[in-house]
């Protein structure tokens, strides 16, 4: 299929593995889905310690389930990316380990305290959910299918995150103060989630032209701010003075020059120190179990896999 035809036909769920897609499309889609999949893995990496640190058994279960879901989302997304025929999952996971795979800015920062968890589990996941909902209509069908399941599950994550925030916000004075501190630390990063504003609001990039993206970052940022700033205020969180936020008729605008874009681009290049540490931490974990993957590969190639499947079906 030539690029003009792709742009012409670029409707929701229009293309799948059966279509002969041009290389530009396959590469752009792979880049986008790989980024998304990597983010699920690195988000899970960040949240995992809180399974252990949960202050009740029910919370522990919820945190374990949430982390499990994120890994499950990674599984779905890497499969959707693999279906473009550009890279295998193994390649993509190796790239992530080597520090070449890119992922969301927020997952480059360390998270060590319980009061920080709603910053990811409510605000960052909420921002991601806003974007993901629009991707149910992406033109790469396997990506849209992954999005169906991810969006189905994600409601639990956001509510769980909000519930933790609510518990802190309505609990002890100390809990409230710690929550406010965590909010002040994370708020600028959360505001950078959708990247810097596009110069031209009608600007269309390649991904939009071929239907991979359904909504621009500016529009998504706006929808996010409109829904989540009132939420933060509802829980008594004070929005920091900087970066300045201008409100007009219930819509919000961030004064972008107040944000640290140099840091943002350092993060984006995988060069921020804590981000590097997190990448390397995951890499070590991945390497430590390489022997198991090799065992599975050997088993598969020894031809015993089919026989065993058969036995399972008997």
């Amino acid at each position: 299929m030539d690029l003009d035809t792709v742009k012409e036909r670029a409707g929701p769920r229009e293309f799948g593995p059966g279509d002969d897609m041009p290389e530009e499309y396959r590469k752009a889609a792979t880049r986008m889905i790989q980024f998304h999949a990597n983010s699920e893995i690195m988000g899970a990496y960040l949240e995992k310690p809180f399974i252990r640190q949960s202050p009740s058994l029910d919370r522990k279960l919820a945190f374990s389930a949430k982390t499990q879901d994120e890994i499950g989302h990674g599984q779905l997304l890497y499969r959707a990316a693999e279906s473009l025929g550009v890279k295998t999952r193994e390649q993509m996971l190796d790239e992530l380990a080597a520090g070449e795979g890119k992922f969301l800015n927020c997952f480059h920062y360390p998270m060590t305290e319980w009061q920080e968890t709603p910053m990811i589990a409510f605000f960052v996941d909420g921002a991601a959910m806003r974007r993901q909902a629009t991707l149910k209509r992406t033109s790469w069908e396997p990506y849209a299918h992954a999005m169906d399941k991810i969006c189905f599950e994600e409601g639990f994550h956001i509510k769980h995150g909000e519930d933790i925030m609510r518990e802190l916000a309505t609990g002890s004075k100390r809990g409230q103060e710690l929550l406010q501190e965590a909010f002040e630390e994370w708020w600028p990063r959360i505001l950078q989630f959708f990247g810097p504003t596009d110069d031209d609001s009608t600007h269309h990039d390649f991904s939009a032209d071929v239907g991979l993206k359904r909504m621009g970052n500016d529009e998504l940022r706006q929808a996010f701010l409109n829904a989540y700033i009132p939420k933060a205020e509802k829980y008594g969180l004070e929005i920091p003075e900087k970066p300045r936020i201008v409100e007009e008729d219930g819509t919000y605008e961030v004064i972008e020059e107040d944000l640290d874009w140099e840091e943002f681009f350092t993060v984006a290049k995988n060069e921020y120190p804590s981000g590097r540490e997190q990448i390397n931490g995951r890499k070590e974990a991945q390497e430590a179990v390489a022997w198991v993957r090799k065992s599975l590969d050997d088993w598969e190639h020894a031809g015993t896999a089919g026989a065993s499947t058969q036995r399972a079906a008997d």
Partner: peptide, 23 residues
Amino acid sequence: SYRWVMPYNRVDPEFAEEIAESE
């Protein structure tokens, strides 16, 4: 039930349509 939206009933999903839809 911890892996479902239902028990988190102290918070309201209606503030964002995508959350309400997931719910």
